[in-house]
Design a binder for these strands. Sequence first.
DNA 1: GGATAGCTGTTACC
DNA 2: ACCGGTAACAGCTATCC
Length: 831
Amino acid sequence: MKTEFIPIDYDYFDFEGKNFARVIGRNPQGKRICIIDSCDVYFWAILKNGLSERKTKNLIEKIEKIKLDIKGRNTIVEKVEIHKKNFLGKPVKALKIFATNYKDLHDIADKLGFEEIEKRRGYDLGFITHYIIEKKMVPMHWYEIEGEVLSNSQEFGGIDSVLDVDLCINLKEFKEIDEKKFAPKVLAYDIETDELEIGKGEILMISFVSEEFKKVITWKKPAKKMEHKIPVEYVKNEEEMLKKFAEYVKKISPDFLVGYFSDGFDLPYIKARADKLEIKIPLGLDDSSPKFSRGGFAGSMTGKIKGIVHLDILKFIRTAYSQYMQSETLSLNEVSNEFLGEGKKDFVFQHSSKISDENWEKYFEYNLHDSALVFRLFEKVWYDIIGFSRVMQEPIFEVSRNGMSKNVESYILHNLDKFGEIPEKKPTHGEIAERRYMEKYEGAFVFEPIPGIYENIAVFDFTSSYGSVIVTYNLSKSTFVGKNLNKIQGKNTHHVETNGENLYFSKKEGFFPEMLKEIIEKRKKYKQELKTSSSADDAIKKARSNAYKLLANASYGYQGFFGARYYCREAAAATAGFAKKSIHDAIKNIDKGGYKTIYSDTDSIAFLLSGKTEKQTVEFLDNLNSKLPGIMELELEGFFSRGLWVTKRSGNLGAKKKYALIDKDKRIKIRGFETVRRDWCALARKVQNTVIKQVLEDGNGEKALKYVKEIIIKIKKREIEKKDLIIKTQLKKPLEEYKAISPHVIAARKMHEAKIPISQGNLVEYFIAESKEKKKLIRDRVKLPDEKGEYDIEYYLEHQILPAVENIFQVFKVSIEEVIEGKKQTKLGDF
DNA sequence: GGATAGCTGTTACC
DNA sequence: ACCGGTAACAGCTATCC
C-alpha cells in the first residue's frame, strides 16, 4: 500500500516490550491515516580520553551483559557500538548503547558507573523527539509512505481495530515529497458555567464552530418556547449534554479541537463534571478520555486527546505574539479585537437561576460567538503554528504550548546531527538552583539624552543585535575557553572585558553560533523572498521567516536561561559585553562622521543629520557596515523630522527609555511614555498622546498648552467620564502575600469582599474617589468602578495629568504646575 | 511631626 | 519557565532631624 501523508499528531505505545511511534495524519484526499513505526533507541557513553582498546573492549563486554527487570519489563542492552562523535565541540570516542525500551534508558545509564566512562548523555530526550531525529519524519511535511495495511489484524495487539481512522499502516518505507495544500479540519469550542472554579458548578452550555457547523448544546431550556436565531439543541440534563459533546467531536472528527484557555478551563471542567457524573468523555480516536498533565511549571495544565490535537490558542499567542501586541491583557475579547477587529458580545453575567428567557437567548449567542472568535483566531495563527512546527521539528501539540526557550532547544536538538554532536543533558534540580543563585551580570548601555525637541533625526540599529554578536564572536558553552587567561592561553581567541573579568572564546566555530548563523541567514533570505514574491504561499513564507526571527531573538536569552541544556552564563555576559562595545564604537564613528548622537539604547542610535542629506546618510551607513566585523550590520530604522526627549521627574537629567519621534508622513513612534502604560488612566494617556502629537507636529507647545488647559477645566467641572479615569494594575501574586498595600491591593481586597473572583494574574480596575474626611493616603480613596462616588479632582490633576505632561512642557520652559495651580486660585471665582 | 532615603511593586523596553 | 539589565514611578516605611 502506497499513499501520501502529512504527519500531525504523534504519540507512542509499547508492544512486547518495545516502543512504537503512532503518527496520525491525513492523505491528500482527506482520509485520516495512522502509521505505526519503530526506531532504534539508544544513548551515549562518552569514554575517558585515551582509553586503551583493550579496556574499551572489556567495557563493551560488561555493558552488553546488562539486563533490567523493572517496571514489569525485561530490557536488555541490545548492542553496543563505538563511534567518533563530538561533545560540546570536542572530538570524543563514545559508545552507542542500544536498548529494548526507551523508558529504561535512564535506568541503564544509571548502571554505568564505570570509571572508564566520562559522561552519559542522550537518555533524556523524549521518545517522540528521538523518533523524529532518528527517522526524519518531521511534522507538517508531506511524505510518500509505503507499508502494510492493518485491518483487524492481531499485530500490535489489535491496535487498528480500536482506532477510529480510515487507514492504519505498518510503515515500511517513506520519502519526503513536495509541499501540498493542506486544509485542516478544525472545531472550536467554548463552555459556560456558573462557577469559575474547575468542576464546582454545572456546565450550562457548550458551543461549537467549525467550517460548516455551528451549534449550542444546552440543558437550560427557557420556560417559554422560543424561536432562536442560532442553532440551539436542547438536551435533558448536564450528563446528556456532555455525551452530546463527545458525540459531536466524534462525528466531526477534527484534526484540531481548539479552545481559548481551554487547557486551564474548558477541557478540565468538562472532565471534572464527567467524573462527578461518573460518565466517560470518549474524545480520543481510541475512545479514550482526555488526559491531563501538569507540564513544566507552576500548576499549568495541558489536556491531551489521543489522535486529535487539542490546541489552546492562548498559549501559542502568549509565546509567539504577546510581546508584539498592543492588547493590555490576553483576554479573548482584547486579542480578538486586535487580531480580528471584533470582540466578544456584550453580556451581563447572572447566576443561571436568575436568567430570564430573553437573556438565555443572549447567553446562547454570546457562547456561540466565543467559539466563532476562537475559530477565526485559529485561522489567523494557523500558518505561524505550522511554521513553528516545521522549523522546530516538533509536533504542533508541543510547539503550541512550549515557551521560546523550549523551542530554541528543540531546534538545537533536531540539528545536532549535522555537527556529529551528542546532546547535552537537562540540568538537575541542584544545577538549576545553583544557576539561579548566580550573581547577575552587566547588561546594556543606555545613552543619557539631553532633554529637548530636535529636528532632522536618523535612527540606525543593529539587525538581530545580540544574535549577530553571538555569531560574530562565537559565543557559546562549547567555545568558551576560560576567564582571566594569560597571553599564551588567550591566543587566537575573541576576548571581552565585562563585570571586571576577561572572558575568552575560541575562534574555531562552535555549533551553537553556527546554527544561529544559519537561522539569521535563513530569516534574511525568506524575508527577501517575501519582498519580491506575491504568490499564494506568502503566508507560509511569512510564517517561516517569523519563526526564524523569533528563534534568533530568543537565542541570547536561551544561553542565559537557568533551565537550558546549553546554559552558559559567560556566553550571555560576553554577548552583552560585546554588544555594548559595538554600540559604543558605532556612536563614536557616527559622531566622527559629522553627525551628533542624541540617544542610544542597547542596539539603536538616534542622531542629528547636522545638515547632511538622507542620501549622504545612507551612503555613510553602507560605509560603516563595510568596516563592521563578522555579521554585525547596522540598518536604517528611519528618518524623522522631529523627536522629543524629556527630563526625569526628579532632577534635570534626561530621562532614558522615554522618547517620541515623528516622520514626514506624520507617523508617530512613542517609546516608554505613560501613554503606553496601562497603569495610567485613559485620560492621562489620551492627554499625553495628544500633547506629544501636537508638539511634534508644531515644534512648539502653544496649541498643546491650550488643549491641556481645556482638559483641566473639564476635570474641574467633573465633565470627565468615569471610564476614562479607571486605573488598571495587574495582581502579580496571591492577595495575601502583599507586604506593601498599594491602591491596587486595596481594590483587589474590595473585589474579594464583593465576591468578585480575583486571583493572581488578574487585572484590577479602580478609580480614586473624593472623600469628605481628609484622607491622606491614596489607597484610602480607592473605589471599584461600579462603586458610587465622585472622582477626586485633585488626584487626577496632580497625579495623572500633571506628571503625564509636565516634562513635555518643561522642554518649552512652561511650568504646567503653575497652570494647574493658577486655575486653583481662579476656582474661587473665574470658573 | 515633617522630610526624605530607600525599599517594594509594577510595568515597559531593548 | 526567555534572559538580563536599565529605567521610571507610585506608594510606603524607617529614620533622621
